[in-house]
């Protein structure tokens, strides 16, 4: 099993006709994802390599039965695109786009929680998610992940996620689902949402978590792990040496006033019984040990 997506998930790409949407949409399709529709109000009736384009998500859903959407449109339109998908009854919306204003994200998150509690938003500013061998939605390089299990991955960082997938594959360890929640201040899906889903998934036996400096999401995750998780967790937190007050590329990766430091996060995770690696390789080695003792 996997969490959030599998081989039956039908996906509409909002922005399939743009260069990024087209590139990754077709890659995802090639991977085996059911990429069955795209939307663009000006290009309804056309197609992208045989994938039909609809004017709206609602029309795409009506015609193809999609339950998930993937958003590749520019930042100014992301909030309304997510709401359009939610209004159409889409269950999982994956927003890849980076650079969405923080206030848009805050309003969007709370609007979804209030009006569309059945829609899960992943992102914005995330690499998407992959259930290896089943479906890949977003920009993760599918072939670097080994299918199967027993490990679930949840991460705030794109390239470090790739690194984790790759290291596990080198050690012949499979992954049920790998979720990139993104580095923005108000992510639609949190570490805890994913940990909860992995805890409930019978095929996931251990979880690898990749965090970053800034905010308190890792500390909250540590609290959840301590109280509600039976499965072993390993972790890595990037940004140990980041100077305070500097943004390191991600909107979320910023340390302010001594809060949200990597050291504090690692300590909270260790307190919760998590095996914390000092670098990505060590985190991979720790996971290999966990897997071999399962």
């Amino acid at each position: 099993m996997s969490i959030f997506i599998d081989e039956t998930t039908k996906v509409v790409y909002q922005g399939l006709t743009g260069s990024q949407g087209r590139y990754y949409g077709l890659l995802n399709k090639e991977y085996g994802t059911q990429v069955v529709a795209g939307t663009n109000p000006k290009k309804a009736g056309t197609d992208v390599e045989g994938i039909p384009i609809f004017a709206t998500v609602a029309e795409a859903k009506e015609a193809t039965g999609v339950t998930a959407s993937c958003i590749f449109i520019p930042a100014p339109g992301v909030a309304s695109a997510v709401l359009e998908a939610a209004e159409a009854g889409i269950e999982l919306v994956v927003a890849i786009t980076e650079g969405v204003p923080a206030h848009d994200e805050a309003k969007l998150f709370n609007t979804l929680r209030r009006d569309f509690p059945n829609t899960r938003l992943l992102g914005p500013n995330c690499p998407g998610l992959i259930s290896p061998g089943k479906a890949n939605i977003g920009i993760t390089a599918g072939h670097i992940a080994k299918e199967g299990g027993p490990v679930g991955i949840v991460s705030r960082s794109g390239t470090l996620t790739y690194q984790a997938l790759y290291e596990l594959k080198q050690k012949d360890i499979g992954v049920t689902t790998c979720v990139g929640i993104g580095g923005d201040p108000v992510p639609g899906t949190s570490f805890i949402d994913c940990l909860e889903a992995f805890e409930a998934d019978p095929d996931t036996k251990a979880v690898m978590m990749i965090g970053e400096i800034g905010g308190s999401a890792e500390e909250e995750a540590a609290e959840f792990i301590k109280n509600s998780m039976s499965k072993p967790v390993t972790a890595y937190v990037a940004g140990v040496t980041a100077p305070p007050g500097k943004k390191m590329g991600h909107a979320g990766a910023i340390v302010s006033g001594g809060k949200g430091t990597a050291a504090a996060k690692m300590e909270a995770l260790r307190d919760a019984g998590v095996l914390v690696g000092e670098n990505p390789t060590e985190a991979g080695d720790l996971m290999a040990k966990v897997v071999s003792s399962l």
Binding site: R156, S157, T159, L160
Partner: peptide, 26 residues
């Protein structure tokens, strides 16, 4: 490095092995 997370992690690792990074560049 390519990617913010990897770049941050690279800066960390340089420090861990006793060096001192001149920059973060993604």
């Amino acid at each position: 490095a390519n990617g913010a997370g990897l770049a941050m992690s690279t800066v960390d690792v340089v420090n861990q092995v006793g060096g001192s990074p001149a920059n973060f560049l993604d």
